[in-house]
Amino acid sequence: MALRLVSLALFFALWHVGAQFAGARMLPEPLVVLRAIVEEARSGALFLHLGATLARVLTAFVLAMIVGCALGLLMGRSRAADRIADPWLVILLNLPALVIIVLAYIWAGLTETAAVAAVALNKLPNATVTLREGARALDRQLDEMAQVYCMPFPTRLRHVVAPQLGPYFAAAARSGLSLVWKIVLIVELLGRPNGVGFEIGTAFQLFDVTRILAYAFAFVAVMLAIEMFVVQPFERHVTRWRPKNA
């Protein structure tokens, strides 16, 4: 923990020094950015935009995780499903995020639905691939044990299968959350009237680096909080049975 703080302090120190060289227009000092954050917060605009972005991130994330994980499990368990869905997955995996977003806006209009769907569609293949790995790695021996003792399906799912998938789910969630919020920003920049992406777009037109950094860091802080208070405790919970060194 101490090492982390030192590393973080070093980051801000470097930023501060860099700001002296680059000048306030190109790179404002950390304190200036902080002051901008506070100001935006006081006017209420910050929470409005953070809230809009966070809502999109969470909706798209949940959507992508549910559909992506279900698809991944199906593909990992059924060979036929894997054969059928794999080409689609490869296409989706390699289609640039921008293409999906632009097409979604063209086909469905500049709507909230199009925005969220485009983001979810970008995240979905990652979740699918990760959970497919997890489903393939399921322990045959434990499966046989469950079969021999005639464990009912819900018991098997909860006590035999889910704990094995936990780490894969956590990995998909972690990489997913950071990916989703980056894509949400692009979606907002291109076709939404609010949100962090929209604000950054406006600031870009005004060449307002302070504002860009203020919104970016405010949202990074939100994501950091989610990581620390939701994702990490979940991960600790699902791996609590692992033997630890004294």
């Binding site: 434990l142 044990m145 021999v148 464990m151 018991t155 006590h159 035999v160 049975w241």
Partner: peptide, 25 residues
């Protein structure tokens, strides 16, 4: 109803000893 003691223990690593038994029985 079957009781099977496999050549390897085949316990659920993420459940306690008691839960391992209770879930099978």
């Amino acid at each position: 109803k079957l009781g099977f003691v496999f050549q390897e223990p085949r316990l659920l690593p993420w459940r306690s000893v008691f839960d391992n038994v209770r879930l099978a029985a």
